[in-house]
Design a binder for these strands. Structure first.
Lengths: 244, 244
DNA sequence: ACGCAAGAGTGGTCTGACCACTTGACCAAG
DNA sequence: CTTGGTCAAGTGGTCAGACCACTCTTGCGT
């Protein structure tokens, strides 16, 4: 079995972006500090000004720096200015360790969003999506219990439909961001989430409540379902921060 | 009385970014479509390639397009790839109208997040922050009931402390994104949120529950408090989408 | 002490060239 | 017919150097 690792193709501007972002997120570049002028950074990184500027533009878009024409580029306080898009870089630090606080935060948020989306979809879920959900759960029961990839796919699709059915765009966008947060450690997550994802009864109870239009029951079922994975994740990441 | 509008000094790359982003978010540029080559876009926009590229890099960072070295730049399905950072542009459409569905989504999410943050902070809130909260509510009672700016400031600070005290980074980052969503219509929001923000009893009940470590009560109090603004906002934006 | 003009320093834009990668057409060997 | 390789055209990526637009500080003049 080959099992090769994917070759990483990194552009110059992306490399610059990564370096600066990492320094801001781990505090080496403090909020309020001014970045050196572009022409100086150009020399330090050994890259062209255009490549450097593309990196800075991305950092600005992310809320990590503030660029002002004529003035200096300053480091912003990402806790006040950034969005969920920085999560992946907070989750997995540059030295390869995992931040437990971020793990907990992500789990709490997915629970709150997931539960509320389930409750909302009890009132709004369109019939076609509901049919798809039933098929998914039926398919879930037929999956080999150890096929982590297939379980991840079905469970992912399951929540996509629930969130879509909730009609809440914010939840839809948040889900994208949260997933990306632990994408870098997908293999571990796939293993830890195994029990939650193959819980046919749990998934079934949830869509039953949604189909019945019982918002409270749907919220409860979602909470129960998600709590399984939360417990498994926290148990694993609690003490050793560097488990990979 | 002058009442002039603020001059918008927009850079070239920002203007290009705005145009493309708007076309993607309102569907004129469909997901999966390929953008013209950079050299062609350069001519159509009448700008330099560097400026154009900076705009494209930002769009990629936002999850609106996918740039591939050697291949064409494609429009992505922002519902699957973007984060909460696109909310401001979904909230206020380019023609100046407001999307009611987005308003509702934002309100639902702020409620879910706010209530959960309150519940979490009941267990985690550090003493210093709690003291600050008490001072804030005391100050709230002393504010002139029509000073919308001051009320907005105090209420904003109030929730900052609650979310900080919850110790959940995701909620902190989400709050940033949600606020930015309706920042463009701040005056209206300030007026509609008036009753919620000057509800001294509601704020007081919430921090009392937090101080007592009663998570369930804190969640309830937060929910009650936030529901006031939700009702006012939905009442106002329900039918006429273009109210300004 | 104050106001303001000038200069230095910063980010913003432009030009034109070349490099690196992807794609598809075409061809040769199996 | 399939497979693999070659090649050329088209795409994004990077580079160089110059100039424009804005901000901030300095120091002069009042």
């Amino acid at each position: 079995m080959p099992d090769f690792a994917q070759v990483r193709r990194t552009s110059v501007s992306a490399a610059v972006f990564d370096q600066i972002a990492a320094q801001i997120l781990d505090g080496r570049l403090a909020a309020g500090a001014t970045l050196p002028p572009e022409r100086v950074l150009t020399e330090e990184f050994g890259v062209n000004r255009q490549a450097l500027r593309e990196a800075l533009q991305r950092l600005d878009q992310l809320g990590l720096v503030e660029i002002r024409h004529g003035g200096a580029t300053r480091v912003r306080d990402y806790r006040r200015s950034a969005g969920l898009d920085v999560l992946p870089r907070l989750f997995l630090r540059q030295d390869g360790t995992i931040d437990v606080d971020i793990v907990r935060s992500v789990l709490e948020m997915r629970t709150a969003i997931g539960a509320d989306a389930a409750a909302l979809s009890a009132a709004r879920m369109p019939a076609p999506l509901l049919d798809e959900l039933h098929e998914l759960v039926a398919g879930l029961a037929a999956v080999d219990g150890d096929d982590v990839a297939r379980l991840a796919s079905i469970d992912g699709h399951f929540w996509d439909l629930v969130v879509d059915g909730s009609g809440n765009v914010c939840y839809r966008l948040s889900l994208n961001a949260l997933r990306r947060a632990y994408q870098s450690v997908e293999p571990i997550v796939d293993r830890l989430m195994l029990d939650e994802r193959r819980d046919v009864a749990g998934h079934g109870a949830m869509i039953s409540a949604i189909a019945a239009g019982d918002a409270a029951a749907a919220r409860d079922a979602a909470f129960q379902l998600l709590s399984q994975g939360n417990a498994a994740m926290l148990r694993h990441f609690h003490d050793p921060e560097e488990n990979l």
